[in-house]
Nucleic acid binder design. Structure first.
Length: 187
DNA sequence: CCTACGATCCCCT
DNA sequence: GGGGATCGTAGGC
């Protein structure tokens, strides 16, 4: 999808975009797969980095839609987000590896496809996403995001690893996929 | 199967 | 100076 069409797709609240991104193709330098798990974060959302307004770290979240927001997590991992309407973003938590399997296996140091990109930190390691990608367009030379309609059973549930606004059911995923960071509960 | 914990940066107060 | 939108490993049941 080109950058203009992708911007239009992303220029909505993250809770609306996040479920529609399940099934999308995500590639970085030709390596990647299909998105199987996402989470939405909003400006009025105490769990969101954008909750307190713009800062140096979250600047990309307040930039144009359809760009990347990449941040350091726990001092060790990178996490990759898709910027939506101003101050909102979708965290991509897991991929079904599909293109460039050997590159991902080499970067992750293992050959089990189910563990290559099952989790936000694992995903960025497999795709070699770092701070250098923060603010980059998602239909550019390095990153290609291609949402497409897919008839699929979606599961929802509470977001993972947060301590505020834990009641918002803003985690979305492909029900029953073996590539999720964690299974979804019943209901 | 599960729970516990250490690693290690950067941003924000 | 505190605290994460996490991961891998160790050890118990």
């Amino acid at each position: 999808m080109n950058q203009i069409a992708l911007t239009e797709f992303c220029d909505r609240p993250a809770w609306e975009v996040a479920p529609e991104l399940v099934g999308a193709a995500l590639l970085v330098e030709g390596v990647g797969g299909l998105v199987v798990e996402t989470e939405a974060y909003e400006p009025d959302d105490p769990a969101s980095h954008s909750f307190g307004g713009p800062t140096a770290r979250n600047a990309a979240m307040f930039g144009p839609p359809a760009h990347a927001y990449v941040y350091r997590s726990y001092g060790i991992h990178w996490c990759f987000n898709i910027v939506c309407r101003r101050g909102s973003a979708v965290l991509v938590r897991a991929l079904e590896p599909k293109w460039g399997l050997e590159a991902m296996m080499a970067r992750r140091g293992l050959r089990d496809a189910a563990l290559l990109a099952a989790g936000p930190g694992r995903l960025t390691q497999a795709l070699a996403i770092t701070r250098a990608h923060d603010g980059m367009p998602l239909a550019g030379a390095a990153i290609a995001l291609d949402p497409h309609p897919a008839a699929q059973p979606l599961a929802t549930g509470p977001r993972i690893g947060i301590s505020k606004a834990t009641e918002r059911p803003w985690r979305f995923g492909l029900a029953g996929s073996r590539y999720l960071s964690r299974p979804f509960g019943r209901g």
